[in-house]
Every structure is written in C-alpha cells, then in structure tokens.
Write a protein that binds this DNA or RNA. Sequence first.
DNA 1: AGTGTTTATCAGGCATCTCTCAGCAAACTC
DNA 2: GAGTTTGCTGAGAGATGCCTGATAAACACT
Lengths: 231, 231
Amino acid sequence: MATEPIKVLVVDDEPNIRDLLTTSLKFNGFSVYAVGNGNDAVLAAEKGKPDIILLDVMLPDQSGFAVTKKIRAMGIDVPVLFLSARDETEDKITGLTVGGDDYITKPFSLDEIVARINAILRRTQKVETEESVLEVGEILMNEDAHEVFVGGQAVEFSPTEYKLLRFLMTNANRVMSKGQILDHVWEYDFGGEMGIVESYVSYLRKKLDPLTTEPVIITKRGVGYMYKSSK
Amino acid sequence: MATEPIKVLVVDDEPNIRDLLTTSLKFNGFSVYAVGNGNDAVLAAEKGKPDIILLDVMLPDQSGFAVTKKIRAMGIDVPVLFLSARDETEDKITGLTVGGDDYITKPFSLDEIVARINAILRRTQKVETEESVLEVGEILMNEDAHEVFVGGQAVEFSPTEYKLLRFLMTNANRVMSKGQILDHVWEYDFGGEMGIVESYVSYLRKKLDPLTTEPVIITKRGVGYMYKSSK
DNA sequence: AGTGTTTATCAGGCATCTCTCAGCAAACTC
DNA sequence: GAGTTTGCTGAGAGATGCCTGATAAACACT
C-alpha cells in the first residue's frame, strides 16, 4: 500500500472548485497539483508527469481540448477526465470518451470524481491492484456493472442510493457525519437540508436489512452514520 | 497475452484525425506510430515494420496509392486500410485493394476502424488467435459473415444496429454511458443528440427480446446501458 | 424514377427519482 | 418521568430520464 501516490493534475479557473478538488483528492490519498489556466496546465503536465488530469473544458485562455492536444502532441499519454458545465456538454462531448478519457458534468459530487478517477486508472492499467469490485461484509458492489449483491442477492439502487452506499462502504467502520456525507455524495452546490441524508439512509436500510443477518448501517446518534462490517 | 503488440502506422494529414485514431488504437492495445504525409509514411513503413497501415488516400504530397506502391516496391508486404472521403470515387479504390487491403470512408466510427483492422489481420494470418466469432450469452456474432444468431435463430440488423450490438457485446457486463456509445459507434463528426442511442437500443430490443430468455440490454437509469450475460 | 430501408428527430406517456415535510418513535437530559 | 432533542419513515409534489410510435429525410437497390 505504501507505493508511489497517484499524481493528479487539477485544472480549473474557479479557485473554489480547485480548492474543493485539491482538498478532497489529497484526503483520498492522491498527490495533487492544481493550476488555473491552460498554459500552466501544459507546463505542469510536462514537468509533473501526472497519472491523470482533471481538466475543465472552459478555461480563460484556451479550451480544454486545445490543452489536451498540446499535451498529447508532446508525447505525454496521460488520461484526462474532463469537467464541463451541464449545458455545454450535450453537443460537444463527441470524441471525449475515446481512449481512457471520460467526462463528468458540473456540478459533480466529490465521491463521483474519486470513483471515476479510479475507474479510469483501472482501465488504463496504471493500477493493477485495483479491482472493480468492492466487497465489504455481506455486500458486494461491482463498479463496472453498477450492480450490488446483498448476501448473494442482486438489489437495485437509484443513482443517489448507489453513491451513498458506495461512500459508506469505502469508509466502512468509520462514522461519517451527515455533513460529510452531504459534501461527498451530493453535488457541491446542493442547497437543501441534511434531512435528505436521513431519508436516503432509510431507503438503503429498507432494501438492505431484509437481506443481511444484522443491520449494516449503524446510527451514531448526534454524530453520524457508519457502515459496519465485522470483517 | 503478453505477446508483441500489433504495430499500426497511421497516415493522415489532419492532426485531429491522427490524434483520434492514435488515442483510440492505443487504448485498444495497438502500438501506434502516426505521420502526416506520404514521404514520412514510406520511411516509417521501412523502419517501423508495421503490421498494418491506416492510410489516407488524399495526402498533401502524394496519393495514398503512390505511397502503397513505393512501400510494396521495397518488398514490404503490409496490408493497408485506406481512408477516403465519401465522395472520392469508390471504384478507383476498389481496384487497388489487392491482397489483404481494404478501405473505409470518412467519416468513420472508431468501433468500425478497430473491427476492420482485426478483420484484415485475421485474413492476412498475422494473428492466429483472433476469432471472427463473438459469442456472449445467447447471442453469436460472426464478424466475417456479418451474421448474428440469437438463440440459434438468424436475425437481420441494419449497419448501425449491428455496430451498436457489437460494441455492447464487446463490453459485456460493463455499463456504457450514452456518451461513450455515441463516441464509439457513431461517426466521429456526428452532431446529433444522445436520444439516438435510446432509439437504437429500442430497435435492438425489439429484435432481441422475443428470442432471448431474458432481456440482454439492461438500462442503468442515469448511467447508461449494459449488455448482460450471466456467463 | 420507384420502392423499400435506414437514419435521425421529436413529442407524449410513463415510471422512477429527488427532495421536503410532518407526525411519530427513540434516546438522551435533568 | 417529563420534557427535549434527534432520528425515522410514509406520503406526495415536482422533476427527470427513458421508451416508443410517428414521421420525414437520406440513401440504396433495382
């Protein structure tokens, strides 16, 4: 586990987004370097040899596509995860998911970013050890197929339910506060109340509890929730 | 599996096309070298000993046919997949596609390029291991004959339906987003909406579902589609 | 030129999902 | 044990995503 950390280059002109991504990715064990424009991105890609680039398609000096071309032209064959606003996406996505590349729309959730980065690294063989299957306790989650098995039984989940479950599973046996959950599972511009977390935990329990020998999501009153597995 | 990678020489004067092909082919496991004109192509063919050449017929300095002749004159017997604009007369090309050669019109789809390369390599014996038959679950696809059998029953598909089915089958048990599908199955300059994917999935299901014991194309709401086979 | 096929768009309908709220239950405080 | 806080969950409104039939244009093959 103490191998070289994965290097991520973050490129976005909005300082808020940059900080958000930097903090979150560092916390997830990545080594992060962030810049705010295309020129710096090209330079950083050349010098820093990142394993993956998080690249906003709308930059002040040039488009993310231009940046990608310049980087590739230098013979640097690094996968790119594009970030784009929801409305500019639909028509311009053509060609973006070629090779190891992928794209994600703003506003995104931090958990989703991490999941997608891992998916890309898995596909591009940068990481051999990573498995697309996440198994904790009685629950098995196949990320590629977006399928979940609880005690061997396939269970369907809505996108948000799925993300919440994945977040709790990846942080198994650790209490996560509702605030943390909201910050990681919901899109970063979510303006609602924390009650939504309670609702979704309830949805999860309704589907999970009938199939597990003991409750998997524990409430730590006044603190948060925890996915529990006796290992 | 750890055999020598297939070497592909890409020759096209448009940098966009070059990048697109390079990225896509590399991701599909090929070793790629790309040049932008006929002279460099001849040199690269001599030094690089490619297993196959992707050759644009309209190059700035000389025609793709001239390039082919020079290469063959040097005793290098490499198959060529010609790329030509749709309006360039097809009969001219047809006469020149000797041996294992083939041609494909621009704009092409990336999935089609890979399929054609594999078909040529199969025919020219460069690769013995490759099979022309793709069988996943209850569906069997014979690439050479362009035939599909669903539960032993022959079914006809339109070109786009066929390509979509092949793409889903080659990525069985993995959810593919509509964006990914569009990027790989449709021509690279397709400017339409993702709704077209929904339509074609609907067409496929109408033909497949009556002949399979259970639905083969699964919708993962908010994520994409998946060809499912219980293995 | 004529016919049938294929591609692509669109809109209506439908199912699901998201989020909020309110009443109830459980747990903690004193 | 009474009061207070915190969490649980059913109900429901509105939004979203997906499916499919209708349709028109492009194309292919006589």
